[in-house]
Simulated scan of single mutants.
Amino acid sequence: MSAGTHPSLRMDVPIIILLIHLTHTEIRGLLFSRAETETGCSLGHFPCGNMTECLPQALQCNGHKDCPNGADERRCGDNVGWADLFGETLQNSNTVDQYFLNECFLQEYPESCDCIQTDVACVEVNLQEVPRLSPNITWLSLRSNQIRVLSDSVFSEYSALERLFLQNNSLQLISKDAFSGLHSLKRLFLSENLISSLSPGVFKDLHQLEWLDLEGNQIQTLNYSILKSCSKLEVLLLMDNQIRRVPENTFQSLWKLAELNLSTNRIKELPKNTFKNLSKSLLKL
């Protein structure tokens, strides 16, 4: 349904475009805001700053510089950059004490990791489990290690944590209470692992979560009980999994969702009301 054909659609609200393409082996479901179509890139892609290069949306703010100029990791709050912490004016000021900006404010973190202020990066350091860290940590990257299991309450002491990167770890088992206590978490990256299932309630404490990336796993089923606590979720990436069925109430509580990607799964058909609540809340129909 387009904006021009529905009499009750208000023109002063963001317009979300829903694209669905079904084949025998996959479904492509994407929700995008109109703003993304004005960047010069195709739907599902973003520009690398002032460059002509466009990359898939899943690579933006994923904790890794994919644009040659690093534009994909700017203004994310995910990378060790001072714009989010102090503002651009202070960042560019000649009077900024660079020693202070690079100082670590954590008392405990592994020697093999890098720490700046309350941000810790433990990338490709052969970790097999989540390390001990100071409770005031706000940003943690454990990308590209060998962590295969997330046990109960493994992050429970880190209630201030806002960004958590766990890509490329061969993760197989995530306990139902693995993310308990993460009341401030806004972005969670679990892409490129071996996750085949998610327990009901696994994200129950993630009431502030805005971005969830589960791309490139082996997830087979979705249901309402997995996502019902994530009412602030804006981006949900589920492409390249093994999903066969999506119950019609799966996304019922995700009224703020602005991007949903279900491409390259094994869904043959969708219940007609799968996106019903999303359409009403996002498009104001």
Rank of each mutant, 00 (worst) to 15 (best):
A3M: 13
G4H: 02
H6V: 11
L9G: 07
I16C: 14
I16F: 09
L18Y: 02
L22P: 07
T23P: 12
R28N: 13
L30E: 11
L31F: 05
F32C: 13
E36H: 10
G44D: 02
G44T: 04
F46V: 15
M51F: 07
T52L: 15
C54V: 05
C54D: 01
L55K: 09
L55A: 04
L55W: 02
A58I: 06
N62M: 14
H64L: 14
N69V: 12
G70D: 08
E73S: 10
R74V: 12
R75C: 15
D78N: 15
V80M: 14
D84P: 11
N92I: 01
N92K: 06
S93F: 00
N94P: 13
V96A: 15
D97M: 10
F100I: 12
F100R: 14
N102D: 10
E103H: 14
L106K: 07
Y109G: 15
S112G: 12
C113N: 10
C115M: 09
A121K: 12
A121W: 11
V123C: 10
E124I: 05
V125D: 01
N126W: 00
Q128L: 01
Q128F: 01
E129Q: 13
V130I: 09
V130P: 12
P131C: 04
R132Y: 02
L133A: 08
S134K: 00
S134V: 00
P135E: 07
N136A: 11
I137T: 08
L140Y: 03
L142M: 08
R143T: 09
R143E: 09
Q146D: 04
R148F: 04
R148T: 11
S153A: 12
S159I: 02
L161H: 03
E162Q: 15
E162M: 14
E162I: 11
F165M: 15
N168G: 11
S170H: 06
S170W: 00
S170F: 00
K176D: 02
K176M: 08
D177R: 03
H183V: 10
H183M: 00
H183K: 00
R187D: 04
F189T: 12
L190Q: 04
S191C: 05
L194A: 14
L198Q: 06
P200H: 10
F203S: 08
F203D: 03
D205H: 11
L206Q: 05
Q208S: 07
L209P: 03
Q218G: 13
Y224E: 06
I226N: 09
S229W: 03
C230F: 02
C230K: 00
S231K: 12
K232W: 05
K232R: 13
L233D: 02
V235E: 13
L237E: 01
M239N: 15
N241R: 00
N241F: 03
I243V: 09
V246K: 00
V246Y: 01
P247V: 07
E248L: 06
T250P: 09
F251W: 02
L254F: 01
W255F: 08
L257D: 05
L257N: 08
A258F: 04
E259V: 11
L262K: 00
S263K: 10
T264G: 14
N265Y: 03
R266D: 06
L270V: 05
L278M: 07
K280S: 13
L283I: 04
L285Q: 04
